[in-house]
Simulated assay, not measured.
Amino acid sequence: MASSPSVLVIDDEPDNFDVIEILLFREGYHLSFAGSGAEALERLSLHFPDIILLDVMMPELDGIQLCHQIKANSLWCHIPIIMVTALTAKEDLALCLDAGADDFISKPVNGIELRARVRSMLRIKQQYDELQALLQVRDDLSNMIIHDLNNPLAGILFSCELLRRSELQPKQRQKIEDIFRLSQRMVSLVDSLLIIAKVQADQLVLNYDPVDMYEMGQAIATDFEPVAVHSQMKLVCELPEPGKQIEVDSVILRRVMENLLSNAIKFSPPGGQIILRISYPPEKAVKIQVIDSGSGISEELQQRIFEKYDVGTFHKGIAQTGLGLAFCKIAIEAHGGTISVDNNYPQGSIFTVTI
Rank of each mutant, 00 (worst) to 15 (best):
residue 95 L to G: 01
residue 130 E to R: 08
residue 277 R to E: 10
residue 241 E to A: 15
residue 200 Q to Y: 11
residue 226 P to G: 06
residue 173 R to Q: 07
residue 178 D to E: 13
residue 351 F to L: 13
residue 11 D to M: 07
residue 35 G to P: 01
residue 273 Q to G: 01
residue 15 D to G: 14
residue 127 Q to G: 09
residue 206 L to T: 06
residue 9 V to T: 05
residue 131 L to A: 11
residue 14 P to G: 06
residue 273 Q to E: 15
residue 138 R to G: 09
residue 301 L to N: 13
residue 144 M to N: 13
residue 205 V to D: 13
residue 31 L to K: 03
residue 175 K to T: 12
residue 122 L to Q: 10
residue 104 F to M: 08
residue 139 D to T: 14
residue 262 S to G: 15
residue 315 H to C: 13
residue 4 S to H: 09
residue 288 I to P: 01
residue 176 I to M: 09
residue 174 Q to C: 07
residue 122 L to E: 10
residue 333 E to S: 08
residue 240 P to M: 10
residue 355 I to P: 00
residue 55 D to P: 02
residue 23 L to V: 06
residue 99 A to D: 02
residue 234 K to L: 12
residue 241 E to G: 12
residue 10 I to E: 05
residue 293 S to C: 11
residue 252 I to C: 07
residue 98 D to M: 10
residue 312 G to Y: 00
residue 230 H to P: 04
residue 14 P to I: 08
residue 93 L to V: 09
residue 46 L to Y: 03
residue 202 D to H: 15
residue 89 A to P: 03
residue 9 V to W: 02
residue 269 P to Y: 09
residue 234 K to F: 07
residue 119 R to L: 13
residue 64 I to K: 00
residue 80 P to L: 05
residue 63 G to R: 04
residue 298 S to Y: 06
residue 108 P to G: 12
residue 328 C to I: 04
residue 261 L to P: 09
residue 126 Q to T: 14
residue 47 H to A: 15
residue 120 S to W: 04
residue 7 V to C: 09
residue 239 L to D: 10
residue 85 T to W: 01
residue 16 N to K: 00
residue 40 A to V: 03
residue 263 N to Y: 02
residue 275 I to P: 04
residue 335 H to M: 07
residue 216 M to I: 05
residue 325 L to W: 07
residue 179 I to K: 00
residue 330 I to Q: 06
residue 187 V to G: 02
residue 220 I to V: 14
residue 95 L to Q: 12
residue 322 G to R: 05
residue 51 I to G: 00
residue 184 Q to N: 14
residue 134 L to Q: 13
residue 138 R to N: 15
residue 47 H to L: 12
residue 243 G to M: 08
residue 277 R to V: 02
residue 45 S to P: 06
residue 205 V to E: 15
residue 58 M to V: 02
residue 147 H to F: 10
residue 268 S to F: 03
residue 223 D to C: 14
residue 104 F to S: 05
residue 319 A to L: 11
residue 311 V to W: 02
residue 194 L to M: 11
residue 270 P to Q: 07
residue 52 I to L: 10
residue 96 C to D: 00
residue 188 S to W: 04
residue 261 L to K: 05
residue 128 Y to K: 01
residue 217 G to L: 03
residue 171 K to E: 15
residue 337 G to F: 01
residue 128 Y to V: 05
residue 61 L to C: 08
residue 39 E to K: 14
residue 277 R to Q: 11
residue 342 D to C: 13
residue 284 K to V: 05
residue 79 I to V: 12
residue 44 L to T: 04
residue 8 L to R: 01
residue 169 Q to A: 12
residue 229 V to W: 03
residue 36 S to W: 04
residue 300 E to L: 08
residue 251 V to N: 08
residue 8 L to S: 04
